[in-house]
Amino acid sequence: MFTGIIEDLGIVTRLEHEQENLHLTMQSSITHELKIDQSVSHNGICLTVIQIKDDTYTVTAIKETLDKTNLGHLKVGDQVNIERAMKLGDRLDGHIVQGHVDQTAICQSVKPVDGSWVFTFEYDTSLNNITIEKGSITVNGVSLTVVDSKLNQFSVAIIPYTYEHTNFNTFEVGTVVNLEFDVVGKYIKRLYNLNTAS
Rank of each mutant, 00 (worst) to 15 (best):
F2H: 10
T3N: 13
E7Y: 12
D8W: 08
G10Q: 07
I11K: 15
R14T: 15
L15M: 06
Q19I: 08
E20Y: 03
E20D: 14
E20C: 01
T25Y: 00
M26A: 10
M26C: 14
Q27W: 02
S29K: 11
S29I: 12
H32I: 02
E33F: 09
L34M: 10
I36D: 12
I36C: 08
I36H: 09
Q38D: 15
H42F: 14
N43V: 04
G44A: 11
G44T: 05
I45Q: 06
C46W: 07
T48Y: 13
T48R: 15
V49N: 09
V49G: 12
I50D: 02
I52V: 15
K53H: 12
D54Y: 02
T56K: 02
Y57G: 07
Y57F: 15
V59G: 00
A61L: 08
A61K: 05
I62R: 02
K63H: 09
E64L: 11
E64I: 14
N70H: 05
L71V: 07
L71M: 11
L71G: 00
L71I: 14
L74D: 03
V76D: 05
V76N: 06
G77P: 06
Q79V: 10
Q79C: 12
Q79R: 14
V80W: 05
M86F: 01
M86G: 13
K87Q: 14
K87S: 15
L92D: 08
L92T: 07
D93S: 15
H95S: 13
H95E: 08
G99A: 14
G99K: 13
G99F: 14
G99M: 11
I106H: 00
I106M: 00
Q108T: 11
S109Y: 01
K111I: 13
P112D: 15
G115E: 03
S116K: 03
S116V: 10
S116N: 12
F119T: 04
T120D: 11
E122C: 03
E122D: 10
Y123Q: 09
T125W: 00
L127P: 06
N128M: 03
E133G: 00
K134L: 03
I137S: 02
T138F: 12
T138Y: 04
V139W: 03
V139K: 02
G141D: 07
G141S: 12
L144E: 13
T145P: 13
V146H: 01
V146C: 04
V147P: 02
V147C: 11
D148P: 05
K150F: 03
K150V: 04
K150L: 10
L151I: 12
Q153K: 11
V156L: 06
V156P: 04
A157K: 04
I158Q: 08
E164F: 01
H165E: 09
H165W: 03
T166K: 06
T166D: 11
F168P: 01
G174V: 00
T175P: 00
V176T: 10
V177K: 04
L179N: 07
E180M: 01
D182H: 08
V184I: 15
G185Q: 08
K186R: 15
K189C: 04
R190P: 01
L194I: 09
N195D: 02
T196S: 13
A197I: 02
A197M: 07
A197R: 14
